[in-house]
Structures are given as C-alpha cells and as structure tokens.
Design a protein around this nucleic acid. Structure first.
Ligand SMILES: [Mn+2]
Ligand SMILES: [Mn+2]
Ligand SMILES: [Zn+2]
Ligand SMILES: [Zn+2]
Lengths: 158, 158
DNA sequence: GGTATTATTGCTAATAATTTGTACTAACGT
DNA sequence: ACGTTAGTACAAATTATTAGCAATAATACC
C-alpha cells in the first residue's frame, strides 16, 4: 500500500511532512528511532522539516496506530513502525542494538496474571537489558545500528 | 534495622534529609511515589526539604540499591523501596493503582529468550496496563492510592 | 568536646525533551 | 478554482530533572 493510502486509512490527511516522516521510518536502516533521529535524518537527506512537526506527527502516528512508542530505560522515546505483529525487546546497554522477540509462553502467562488479578489488559511493555554477543565476543558490535541513512530513497518528489 | 544503619550499609552518610526521605518511603501509604510525591508529602508533614535534594537523594538511593526506579507509560519516574524481592507491575490506567506480581514462568522464559539471543541479561522491566476490577465493577477504585500520608510517624526528631 | 576537612543541602538558574501559540499555507470537497 | 479547515514552521512555553555554588552539617582528629 502507498504511504499516501496508509495515511488516509489512518484518518490523516496526506501532507508532505507526513509522507516524509513515514517514508523515513519505512526506509531507515534502523528500526527504532527517536524524534530527533527522524528529524536529523530528514535534514541529512536534504529534506526540510521542523522538529516540532516531527514530534507532532509521530504522536499522531502513534494515536493512529501507525507507529509504536517505546520508552527504553533512561532514554527518550523511540518510535518504530507498527508493521510487524506485537513483539518485545532486548536492548544492549553497550551498543544500543535492539533485538526483537516474541514469546508465546510469556504472552500467555501475562494474560493469566491479569485475569487472576481482575485486570482487563490493554497493553504491556517488556524490555530486557543486557549485553549482546557481539560486544562480549568482539568487544564491539558487528553492526553499527546508530548509523542513519544519508539518502532517503523514497519521499523524493516532483 | 534502623534507617540510619541502612544508610550506612548503603555507603551513604546519615543526614537528616536522607532519613526523612527513607522514612517517608517506609511509612507512606502508597508504595510507588514520584520525587514530587515524596517532596510534597514531606512538606505536608511539616518537614522541610528542597525538591532538588529529593531528586538527588532518590538517585543516590537508586544507585545504592535502596530503591527501584520505574518509568510507567507516559509518566515521570516513580520510586519504590527495594525491600521485597523482584516483581513486576500491573498498572490501572483509570485509578493509577499499582498491583505487583511475580511469575516464575515469565522470569524463566525471559532468561531463556536472552540465552538464545546471546544476551547476558542485566535487568528487565515488565509493565502491564489495563483497568482494575474496582473501576470496572464499582466505577471507581475502592482504595484511593493517590492519598498521601499527612503525618510522618517516624522521622520526628529532637 | 572543639575544630578542621569534606560531603551534603537548598536555593536558583540551567537543561533537555517535548508541547503550544500563532500567523502563514497547503489539502481537498464542492 | 475557491473557500473552509487542518497542518506547518518557528518561537516561546512547559515539565521534569540537573547543575552551580555559597551556606551547613557530618565525620575525623586532636
Ligand atoms: Mn509482549
Ligand atoms: Mn520480572
Ligand atoms: Zn521493535
Ligand atoms: Zn512495586
């Protein structure tokens, strides 16, 4: 589906800033980006945008269900496209790498715990923090996930 | 153990502000408090303290392992005394009530997931958000957990 | 106990991240 | 195309937290 159609489906008008941001999220080499990551990446790609707009649009995307906001330990909010199913996260405290996982047993036990406590569950966040294999074995992470794309392949226009 | 001894054991000098804060955490009717909750509660109890000191001391307590810091969805940091063993949290989005739980199966699966990913785990946070039974059945929570103690039973001095 | 040494406090001012106000534009239904 | 309404850019405001620094309080030593 086109980005424009995705915005429409989410009940959002198709505007250039929104297209740029959605496009950046879809094409960036890193999946979990802060508002400023998105902003800087767009500037680096030669796109013009305001930081406040990035914040505003990311929040709209969150409310529309287009992106998920995460609050990893100690840091600012990071956003990821809501294109895969639900999953939880393993964060390396050394290199910042984020590994995603889904564990059916954990999900089921969570539901059970909620049921037993009389809670109707809305959502949950499970973040695990540790040190990844790359750092432990090679002293540094194999892939530098902090690198942002210098060119935005889509979002080119006119 | 006395509060003073607890501070010593944690490698912190016994000072009046630290005693007041530790005492407040030990005696408050709510377990999970923001820095400002602690600050306001102390003022309400007639105790004098600076807000910056509360932030500073809570961070020191965190580093010393005396308290745990949580970042519940959307809100500011909340602190709880590290006197029980590890547990995770169920937060009611309506009344703010916090239920604690420990599920051995979840903990074990988490370890397994980390092992399989080559991660050495340091810590994790699992927060579940929903609506509690009290709200659903009575329209409001039975216990108002937001109420702060007006008098500090300990920490009186001289 | 009295005094030196040094950590800690309580201001207040500074930050960092995010949000808001507003005058200016762009989108889109007709 | 036109008008209405929503969205944008930029600056200024907020909110939560931290930093700078002079005044104080807590051990250490005599
Ligand atoms: Mn999950
Ligand atoms: Mn746990
Ligand atoms: Zn993810
Ligand atoms: Zn707890």
């Amino acid at each position: 589906m086109s980005s424009s159609a995705e915005l429409k489906k989410a009940g959002l008008k198709t505007t250039l800033p929104r297209l740029k941001i959605l496009s950046m999220l879809e094409n960036a080499s890193i999946r979990h980006m802060t508002a400023e990551d998105v902003y800087k990446s767009l500037l680096d790609s030669g796109e013009e945008i305001g930081l406040a707009t990035v914040y505003r649009v990311l929040t709209q995307f969150e409310n529309a269900g287009l992106v998920i906001r995460h609050n990893f330990e100690g840091g600012r909010s990071v956003f990821e496209l809501n294109d895969e199913g639900h999953h939880d996260h393993l964060v390396c405290m050394e290199c910042g790498d984020v590994f995603e996982f889904y564990d059916k047993a954990i999900e089921e036990r969570q539901q059970k715990v909620a049921d037993e406590s009389g809670f109707v569950l809305d959502n949950h966040s499970l973040y695990m923090y540790g040190v990844c294999e790359g750092i432990r074995k090679n002293g540094k992470c194999s892939i530098n996930k902090r690198k942002l794309p210098s060119i935005l392949t889509t979002s080119k226009r006119r």
